[in-house]
């Protein structure tokens, strides 16, 4: 019974513990810290400016177009060069460049007696 009363007293005391509480105050120079935060927000660095520029729809669109045109150009130029003669030429060049002496069926056939 005594314990029950104690608990009720503690609950009542806890609920009243914030009566007459005074306001907590922040650390000094809060305004200075806020101003520093505002200045940091107002002066963006190189990367944030570059990011902001690239995220503009016009710039992003132009960038995408340039990328697509460059890809088309590269694909077309590869198609032009991709003939069997050019390929053979390329292989022969590599063979001479690296001095690879590969024996093949053609080498055997062309051997002089």
């Amino acid at each position: 019974m005594m314990e029950h009363d104690d608990i009720h007293k503690k609950i009542a005391a806890s609920l009243e513990s914030l009566d007459g509480v005074s306001r907590a105050t922040p650390a000094p120079y809060l305004l200075t810290r806020i101003n520093a935060k505002l200045n940091a927000l107002e002066a963006p660095n190189f990367w944030s400016r570059a990011g902001a520029l690239l995220s503009k729809p016009k710039i992003a669109g132009i960038g995408m177009m340039v990328f697509i045109v460059m890809n088309i150009f590269v694909i077309n130029s590869l198609k032009k060069n991709n003939t069997p003669a050019a390929l053979t030429q390329g292989t022969t060049n590599i063979r001479y460049d690296f001095a690879i002496n590969v024996s093949s069926i053609y080498d055997i056939e062309n051997q002089e007696p």
Binding site: R23, A24, T25, P26, A27, L30, L31, R33, I34, K37, L38, L41
Partner: peptide, 27 residues
């Protein structure tokens, strides 16, 4: 500042967080 800080402190119950919140509120 006291009103904002005291309210934030009552909710988050952490002095550092309440200080950050106070700054963010005024920003």
């Amino acid at each position: 500042q006291d009103m904002v800080y005291n309210t934030a402190l009552g909710i988050v119950q952490n002095e550092e967080d309440a200080e950050d919140i106070t700054q963010e509120v005024f920003v």
